[in-house]
């Protein structure tokens, strides 16, 4: 299956939040009490009951105001840091490009949450499981589009083959740039190419997104260097002990009793016949 893509054209977003509602409906996430954070934004971050929400940024230029609205959810990275950080093989990536947490395997350690450059996965402290947008993998695998895409009225969300949709996204970018010169695509190359690709109207920082998101160096160092080298070092120590026991055995260390055979300076008289370790 070829890689899919969801094109989030923020220039078309009206901030209606129907995507949030559709997500809740399909994923059985109950409504929760919200309040205004800033502008028309009602969620500060993801919660166990809200996997997608819209961020609102008011940009003022020459006495005009632009709403920069962005639907936030998991980016579904091509090279997901969460998957690399997971201790429990609970995170998988589908051929479409959807990154999914399996709650049955998840132990809620939170390593995914800490290592995601976008801060997407969170741990539900009650259920002790990590959660995030699934990309509606259960819909997609049955030939449907994700619930948020399905419901989006202004057509700000489109789902399709990555190559075709990316080409459309670039065309759209050229149009949008006439009015928003700072507009750019975000997610074409970031994190190995994300499945949710954004057309942003300004630089990522304006949306509080990292300009160059990457798999944390600490994570790569941990999983690709410390882990294998450490395992070899511990294995080496164990091997050295086996060689040491055999070496002492062959050199008669375990047969010496009562005193050092050569009266050597550093030999203990303690060796008792036998394999030792029972003391």
């Amino acid at each position: 299956m070829a890689r899919k893509m969801i094109f989030v054209d923020t220039s078309k977003c009206t901030g209606c939040k129907a995507c949030t509602v559709a997500c809740k409906e399909w994923n059985d996430l109950p409504a929760e009490k919200t309040h205004l954070i800033e502008s028309y934004q009602t969620m500060r971050d993801f919660t166990p009951k809200t996997w997608t929400y819209v961020t609102f940024i008011e940009q003022y230029h020459n006495k005009t105001m632009d709403f920069f609205m962005r639907k936030a959810q998991c980016f579904h990275c091509g090279d997901p840091a969460c998957l690399k950080a997971c201790t429990s093989n609970a995170i998988s990536k589908s051929a479409d490009g959807l990154v999914v947490i399996n709650p049955d395997k998840c132990i809620g350690c939170g390593y995914c949450a800490e290592n995601c450059p976008f801060g997407v996965p969170k741990v539900d402290v009650v259920r002790k499981k990590a959660y995030k947008c699934t990309g509606c993998v259960d819909r997609v695998e049955n030939g449907l589009t994700p619930a948020c895409v399905q419901t989006c009225q202004p057509g700000a969300l489109q789902y399709g083959e990555r190559e075709t949709l990316m080409a459309k996204a670039k065309e759209r970018l050229n149009e949008v740039r006439k009015r928003y010169p700072g507009a750019q695509l975000y997610g074409e190359h970031e994190m190995g190419g994300t499945t949710y690709v954004y057309l942003l109207l300004d630089a990522p920082e304006v949306y509080h997104l990292p300009q160059h998101p990457s798999v944390p160096v600490s994570l790569t160092l941990w999983k690709d260097v410390i882990r294998p080298v450490g395992s070899v070092a511990v294995g080496g120590a164990a091997a050295a002990v086996v060689v040491g026991v055999l070496g002492n055995w062959f050199r008669g260390g375990y047969r010496r009793e009562g005193g050092p055979p050569d009266g050597g300076e550093h030999h203990s008289p303690a060796g008792k016949a036998g394999k030792g370790g029972k003391e």
Partner: peptide, 25 residues
């Protein structure tokens, strides 16, 4: 993780010398 690996490697050698090595046990 690194601290764990260092201490685990050390304790393996430490236990060998304290329990198994004929001259030092």
């Amino acid at each position: 993780d690194l601290s764990m690996f260092v201490m685990t490697a050390a304790v393996i050698g430490h236990m060998y010398l304290g329990l198994l090595h004929p001259d030092s046990r």
